[in-house]
């Protein structure tokens, strides 16, 4: 079963937004692009029952947004409240200013910060490092496929990607469809004799656990 994972992108500059959307589309993600916070909130609302983005990229400064009725802080607060397990990268020209960082942290305590002055390439590189992860004998390829390295067999499902991206954290799944996909992924891991196994914590909470083996790659810093 295939289901391309969504990525929410809030960027007020049309050219940069196009570039980011193109990057994710090439990696076979489904980008949910927005130039204003109001539009991003609307996208989250429209997708709340069908899917949940595996990643959100948020531009903190929305000076060029066509609609200023909401702020990036509103989007971050919504993500923190309703999509807590979705990793969020916030980038800004003023990320060094403690009052900006404090505002971001109060809107979304788990948000990762990125300095916009390092350029778009630096942001894309960091995103790729986050998404193309290796966990035990599994590797995410192009952000959309989990590859079992010893056999090179592939598992395509966004919930599997979500679990690998979040390792070692616990992920809460919000629908029967999602939990069924997760259990299928667990069976797939078991069937392949993977060093990674699915651990259930009840109430639709799952995480991946890695049996320590010689030569397993450490998780990359993000």
């Amino acid at each position: 079963m295939r289901a391309n994972p969504e990525v929410l992108i809030l960027e007020d500059d049309a050219e940069t937004l196009d570039e980011l959307q193109g990057h994710f589309a090439r990696k076979r993600f489904h980008p949910l692009g927005a130039r204003s916070a109001a539009r991003a909130l609307s996208l989250l609302e429209h997708n709340r029952y069908s899917s949940r983005p595996v990643l959100a990229i948020i531009d903190w400064d929305l000076g060029k947004a066509p609609d200023r009725s909401a702020s990036s802080g509103d989007v971050l607060s919504r993500l923190a409240r309703e999509l807590r397990e979705c990793p969020v990268i916030v980038y800004s020209q003023n990320i060094d200013a403690f009052n900006v960082r404090s505002q971001i942290q109060r809107s979304h305590p788990r948000a990762l910060l990125h300095d916009k002055r390092d350029g778009d390439a630096s942001l894309l590189e960091r995103i790729d490092r986050m998404l193309d992860r290796t966990v035990g004998d599994l590797r995410i390829h192009d952000g959309t496929v989990v590859v079992h390295l010893p056999t090179l067999d592939q598992h395509h499902h966004r919930e599997a990607i979500r679990l690998v991206v979040h390792h070692p954290d616990i992920v809460t799944f919000h629908s029967d469809t999602a939990t069924k996909a997760v259990r299928r992924f667990g069976e797939w891991l078991h069937g392949h004799g993977s060093a990674v196994r699915l651990v259930s914590h009840g109430n639709r909470k799952y995480r991946l656990s890695v049996t320590a083996t010689e030569g397993s790659a450490p998780d990359p810093e993000v």
Partner: peptide
């Protein structure tokens, strides 16, 4: 056609979730 409600009310901040 339905516009999502948003607010910058302090109680909505993610830090209070």
């Amino acid at each position: 056609g339905y516009r999502v409600e948003f607010t910058d009310a302090p109680w909505m901040l993610g830090v209070r979730a």
